[in-house]
Every structure is written in structure tokens, then in C-alpha cells.
Design a binder for these strands. Structure first.
Lengths: 162, 162
DNA sequence: TGGTTTATGTTATTACATAACAGAAGGCGG
DNA sequence: CCGCCTTCTGTTATGTAATAACATAAACCA
């Protein structure tokens, strides 16, 4: 896990394969429950995102998709759109990248939810946190604004990198 | 001011030229005060952003830069980076666009600040609101995370479009 | 005025994302 | 089982966003 800043970032570990398999199975079940199909490209895309516990670029998924050679962009972008709709991944706007939803890990709740992210500019790690936003809700109502989706991303340095 | 959704959006008005001139002068003064140079391409870029009171795409600025023909991308991207550093514009991550900072309008405070945005998906208008984020600050400290910059963007429908 | 720093001009390339259409696979009523 | 419809995938091409690298020019300053 080498990085732009030159450090090793041993603390940014990958999930072991058993853990990933468990989350892939869970994703399968979730889709089935919603009457949606968890197809091969969707599963492969999710697998590649779960392989990192940091946001992954679409073109990294594209490049790693096949053992020999890359996938075509639409294949992956379509899978990403689907996985996002299912609530299995989140798009990180400030990075043009995608990260697995932490709400599905460790048997936590599987409800779709608004999420906030703590994004380390040094090691690239991502932590998903749940927050309510009373102030912006209030400002929105005051303006007569109907909020549909909120993006909340904090960029900075994680504990290990400080 | 026609838009993708097919409406006219008369409520998304442009600033009159006197107002824009005032804000350009104010921007000049701000740069002078900071010992920075408000050059022609920077001023022109700011002018084009002030012409809309909605987020503007970089390539729209590029296309409109000269009366006859477009500017080269680096010219505009460099100006945008400068204006953002000066706190005169904000980047809207979820739109890949830039909007003038409202904190400089109407003689309000000129301090650099974290801002939140209410972004209408129908008419494209943007409203900048000031909010504090006690919950995410708290979550960040709990994780040992040092926040440097926060992106907060609410997408939805403005009062006029609802 | 000459050297240094900062900004711009220019060419080229890289990164990110989707349109459009053809074909395959799954679902379902007959 | 067949035919139809819908959904998903494959493929080509293109559109959109952003930056690298280096040459030139302008401002700053000793």
C-alpha cells in the first residue's frame, strides 16, 4: 500500500478474503431481497472495491477487471451505478472514486442512509460515519429547499498519519 | 436561462453589470490586501462566474473567455485555482463546477470560511449557507481525525422549482 | 539593470464519463 | 417449449474534465 506521500501506510490493511466473500454473499442476498440481479460484472466490481478499504477509482476497477486486460468503461460504470443504487457503495465526489458502504459490514443495519466520510489525504483511507445535519435541514426549510441527497466529505489526516 | 428540465426558470436571474463591477472591484482590493495580483485572466474568469448566479462549468468559462473563440484550458484552470485560494469562488464537487462566494456580496464578511450549498437539480441555482458541523467535528475527534476541509452539498429542489 | 520570481501561452496528453446501438440472457404468459 | 418483452451486457465511438511540461513574458526587487 504505497502512496503519493511516500509513506508505507501499513495501517491501511486490506480485508481478508473470507471477509470479502461474506460481504459478497450478503450483497447477493440483498439484491435477491430487492428483486434485483447480482450479475457477474456487478459482483466483480464490488469485489474489486471491497479489496481496498479506501476509495477506488473507476479506472482502477476497469484495469483490474479481467486477469488479462481491462474491461470497457461502460461495463464498470453501469455496475457502479447499480451498486450505488443498491446502497452497496458510495461515490466520493471530492475524489472521483467509490468506496464500499460500511453499513453492510459486521452485521450492521442495511438501510439506505446518508453518510459522511473522513478522508485521509495522506494514506487515502476512508471512514464512514453517521451524522445528522440539523442546521442544514433548518437552513434548507428556511429557504423552502427540498433536500434529496447530501454529500458530506471531510478531508484531512487520519489518526495514524498525523 | 433555459435548462435541461425544460422550464424557463425566470427566477434564476443574472446580476446587473453594476453589481458585478462592484464585486470585481472588491475582489481587486482583496487581492491587493493579500499582496496577490488580480491579473486579466483571473478577473475575466471571475467576471464570467459572477455573470451567473449558479455554478458554472470550467469549460463554459473557457468557451466564453474571448469574444472570438475559446481560451486554453490551463489559463482558466489556473485562474480558478487562484480564485478559490483567495476565497472568491467555491468548487462544487458534485457538479464539477464553480460558483462565486456569496460571502463577498452585499458588504458581508470577507473571511475565508467553510460553506454549505443548496443546489437545485431543476434550475441549477445555488444558495450558499453557513452551518457549523458539531456532529462531524465530534466524530472526527473521536477517530483522531484532523479535518482540513469540508465539502457539504445538498442536492434537491429550490423553492421556485418545487 | 540584471537576476529572480510569478504568471501566462501553447502543445500535448491524461483522466473521467456517457451516448448509441447491437446482441445475449432472464422472465413469463401462452 | 415457444415467442415476446424486458433487462443486462458488449462494443465502438465520443464527449467532458483536468493537468504535465516547457517556452515566453511580465512584475518585483536588489
Amino acid at each position: 500500500m504505497s502512496h503519493a506521500c511516500g509513506h508505507d501506510h501499513d495501517h491501511v490493511h486490506t480485508l481478508d478474503s473470507g471477509r470479502i466473500d461474506a460481504r459478497l454473499s450478503e450483497a447477493r442476498r440483498l439484491c435477491e431481497a430487492k428483486g434485483e440481479r447480482m450479475t457477474a460484472p456487478r459482483l466483480r466490481t464490488l469485489e474489486l472495491i471491497l479489496n481496498e478499504n479506501a476509495p477506488v477509482k473507476a479506472y482502477d476497477v476497469i484495469d483490474r477487471f479481467h486477469p488479462d486486460g481491462a474491461a470497457k468503461p461502460p461495463t464498470v460504470y453501469r455496475a457502479l451505478a447499480f451498486l450505488e443504487q443498491m446502497g452497496l457503495i458510495h461515490r466520493i465526489e471530492s475524489l472521483n472514486a467509490f468506496v464500499a458502504c460500511q453499513g453492510h459490514a459486521d452485521g450492521k443495519a442495511v438501510q439506505p442512509h446518508a453518510a459522511a466520510f473522513l478522508l485521509c489525504d495522506c494514506c487515502g483511507s476512508s471512514e464512514e460515519v453517521a451524522v445528522s445535519l440539523p442546521e442544514i435541514d433548518q437552513q434548507a426549510s428556511a429557504s423552502g429547499f427540498e433536500t434529496r441527497r447530501v454529500t458530506l466529505e471531510a478531508r484531512g489526516l487520519c489518526k495514524a498519519c498525523r
